[in-house]
Amino acid sequence: MAEIKSPLGDADRKVAGEALQGALIDLLDLSLTAKQAHWNLIGRNFKVVHEHLDEVVDLARASADDVAERAVAIGVNPDGRSRTVADRTQLPQLDPGYLGDDKVVAQIADLLGQIIARFRERVAATDEPDPVTQDLLIGITAELEKQHWMFQAQV
């Protein structure tokens, strides 16, 4: 079976691969969490928050694909299996059942803040080993920060 040869040395590939895998877990769980909130949302601001959650889902899914494809491009196998996401996520889970819009807005703002902090650590970690991966992570971080701002403005 053929393997993808990495343009990076082993040590640099390891750092970049770990950053990308962590980002993948965050993004996949963010997409699932935002969709769960989207389906179970209730409250006076239902329509606005419901539609905004889909923006977060779309961002997370598209970014997860970019992250996974970057991992493969540097010779690292991404692992987005449901068991891996469930075992390795750092995001707190939403409560079951209906979720009030104000609570969802606050929780999503908090989750985005947690993810952004980890993305910024990954940006710093990939500065020397792989500026291309760093650039990808910077772009995703900017989009996450935009969503964070928009949710914080609703709190």
Rank of each mutant, 00 (worst) to 15 (best):
G22W: 02
Y98W: 15
V72A: 13
L137G: 06
P131T: 01
N77L: 13
A68D: 04
Q90Y: 13
G75D: 00
I116K: 02
T89W: 03
F46Y: 09
R83A: 11
Q107Y: 12
G97E: 04
R81S: 13
G75S: 03
N40T: 08
A2T: 14
V155H: 11
T33A: 15
L111I: 10
A125Y: 02
D130I: 02
Q21A: 08
A142D: 15
N40F: 07
L24I: 05
V67Y: 07
V15M: 03
A19H: 05
Q21L: 01
A109M: 02
G80R: 06
G97S: 03
Q154K: 09
D58S: 11
M150N: 07
R44E: 15
V56Q: 03
V67I: 10
D54N: 11
A109W: 04
A16M: 05
L28G: 04
P78H: 09
A60S: 11
T33D: 10
T133V: 04
V76K: 07
S6W: 02
G75N: 00
I74R: 05
I115N: 03
L59T: 02
V48I: 15
A142K: 14
I74Q: 00
D130A: 03
D65F: 06
A60F: 10
L20N: 04
A153R: 00
V72D: 07
L28R: 12
A142I: 10
Q21V: 08
V48S: 15
G17V: 01
R70F: 08
E3Y: 14
N77Q: 12
K103I: 13
R13Q: 10
L91K: 05
R44L: 15
R88T: 13
A124R: 13
L8V: 03
V56N: 07
S82K: 12
Q154E: 13
D110C: 07
V76E: 06
R44F: 14
E18A: 10
P131D: 03
A19I: 00
Q114K: 14
P131Y: 01
M1W: 12
K14M: 11
A124C: 05
D135Y: 00
V76M: 04
D79V: 09
L53Q: 00
Q147A: 10
I140A: 04
V56F: 09
A142M: 10
F46W: 08
L112Q: 01
S82Y: 11
L94K: 00
L28Y: 08
Q154I: 09
E55H: 09
S82Q: 13
V85W: 05
D87V: 07
G139K: 00
I108N: 02
H52D: 15
H52F: 12
Q147N: 11
A68S: 08
A106S: 12
K47I: 15
E69P: 05
N45D: 15
L59R: 05
T133P: 00
F151P: 05
L24T: 01
I140H: 00
I115E: 01
G9R: 08
A19F: 01
R61V: 13
S31N: 04
Q107G: 08
L28H: 09
A73M: 08
M1E: 12
E69Y: 04
G100K: 10
